[in-house]
């Protein structure tokens, strides 16, 4: 099963779709969690997920804003989608009936 940070990264990459690369994923995670995220955590997790076959990466375009340096583009593989979906199902299933989940469900309906 995925780790929580692995899930966050895959979900952020999936949300960014064709614009998913290191800096964008980092920004998305920081925005949603409200916490600082180190570049080391991003890249070691990307490496690990790629080794597991859950992500595919390739070198993208270089821009002037990046000092002419290439981006490392990220795409979630079907295996990655399945793993994230399994994680999500486990979290929602285990959360059913607990106070904070009930409160949230109540507030959204």
């Amino acid at each position: 099963m995925l780790g929580e940070f692995e899930y966050l990264l895959i979900t952020a990459a999936a949300g960014l779709s064709d614009d998913a690369y290191g800096a964008a994923i980092r920004e998305a995670i920081e925005t949603h969690t409200g916490e600082k995220c180190s570049i080391g955590a991003i890249y070691t997790t990307i490496d690990r997920l790629e080794t597991k076959g859950l992500l595919k990466t390739w070198m993208g375009e270089a821009t002037a804003q990046r000092g002419g340096r290439a981006k490392r583009m990220v795409r979630v593989t079907p295996k990655g989608v399945q793993a994230a979906s399994d994680f999500y199902n486990v979290v929602t299933s285990v959360s059913r009936g607990v106070a904070w989940a009930t409160k949230r469900a109540g507030s959204t309906t």
């Binding site: 290191g22 800096a23 570049i39 821009t63 804003q65 990046r66 340096r69």
Partner: peptide, 14 residues
């Protein structure tokens, strides 16, 4: 190089 380039680019972008 395949790690260095995107990492430095991300840092400059941020």
């Amino acid at each position: 190089p395949e790690v260095r380039e995107p990492v430095l680019g991300d840092m400059l972008e941020a």
